[in-house]
């Protein structure tokens, strides 16, 4: 009996082991809290840094487009407009492309291995760093589209969006490169949502004589809609915050223009361009712009998460 007990030296949990257990738990607790701390830290720091500019220009900052470090006048309208226009228009193009691709991947028009290759290609596209896409855009994409833009201006110049002579770097190029970057996001989320639609719904629809595309449009897509919407919102958040490729190709001009063929600005490209060299009240104004960008992307993101929660697991 006694011999046996000796074999199990650790039968009793010693104080020290209990303490390790508690320390371990609390350490992980602190580490996970760090996420919240960093998040609030970011919001607070950016907010306080922008305070000087905020108290000086108030909401006028959002609607004036004078950006003049010499006269110390700052208004971010051009950049805000650019952010919204480039992200929304690129999304408008990406949604049908991405959903169409997702349908291609989830239906059986072609053998499975072809679809898998397409799927991996699109996902690998997401892995290409944005700065590399920017480089590619400058040296390959821009020359490729040059003639087309001239044509666009010539024949559609009466539309305000194409009303200016095409500049070498312009907002439309930024929109196109954004489409390339958003495509993987929308495609992969749309694909996952389509895959989650229960098979029985497709059966039900085919079973009463609906054709393939009637089934897709009337049954499958509506059932996947909330997931796709969430993906679209995530892509929107991404588009608004996307920096490098856009900065490299948009032309970076604070002169406001309706035309997409003129150089433009987005909040993030303005930050990338000016932050390193700014001083004085310009810094605070840049923080103010950063704060606006952050709020925009937070709102979009939180809305996306809400959507996912609200509509998931309906069946």
């Amino acid at each position: 009996m006694e011999e046996k007990l000796i074999l199990f030296k650790n039968r009793k949990r010693f104080g020290i082991e209990k303490n390790i257990d508690i320390i371990f738990k609390n350490t992980t607790l602190v580490l996970s809290s760090l996420v919240a701390i960093v998040l609030f830290g970011i919001i607070l720091v950016v907010f306080f840094q922008s305070f000087e500019s905020f108290s000086r220009y108030g909401l006028n900052f959002l609607v004036t487009s004078e950006w003049n470090p010499v006269k110390d006048e700052y208004g971010a309208f051009t950049a805000i407009y650019g952010t919204l226009v480039t992200s929304l228009l690129s999304l408008l193009i990406t949604i049908p492309l991405g959903v169409g691709t997702a349908i291609f991947i989830t239906e059986d028009f072609v053998p499975k291995f072809v679809r898998e290759i397409v799927g991996s290609f699109v996902e690998l596209l997401a892995a290409i760093p944005s700065v590399v896409l920017g480089l590619w855009a400058i040296f390959v994409m821009e020359p490729f589209f040059r003639e087309f833009f001239v044509f666009l201006h010539k024949f559609f110049g009466w539309i305000p969006l194409f009303s200016s002579e095409p500049a070498g770097r312009n907002s439309l190029l930024a929109i196109i490169i954004l489409v390339v970057m958003l495509l993987p996001i929308v495609t992969s989320i749309a694909r996952d949502s389509l895959n989650q639609v229960p098979k029985k719904l497709r059966n039900a629809s085919y079973g009463i004589g609906a054709s393939r595309w009637k089934t897709i449009f009337s049954v499958i897509l509506p059932a996947a809609l909330s997931g796709i919407m969430a993906g679209v919102l995530l892509a929107l958040g991404r588009a608004m915050g996307e920096t490098m490729a856009v900065t490299m190709i948009i032309g970076n001009s604070n002169v406001f223009s309706w035309s997409l063929l003129s150089p433009g600005y987005t909040i993030s490209s303005m930050l990338a361009n000016q932050f390193g060299e700014a001083d004085g009240s310009q810094v605070s104004s840049l923080f103010y712009a950063a704060f606006v960008l952050m709020i925009l992307s937070l709102v979009v993101n939180i809305f996306a998460q809400w959507l996912v929660k609200k509509f998931s697991l309906k069946y």
């Binding site: 229960p198 029985k200 719904l201 059966n203 039900a204 629809s205 085919y206 079973g207 009463i208 004589g209 049954v219 509506p222 059932a223 309906k314 069946y315």
Partner: peptide, 16 residues
Amino acid sequence: RRRIGMVFQQPNPFPK
């Protein structure tokens, strides 16, 4: 399928 309809093992109404 329009002339030969089918009812399945699991009830499968549309989410409509």
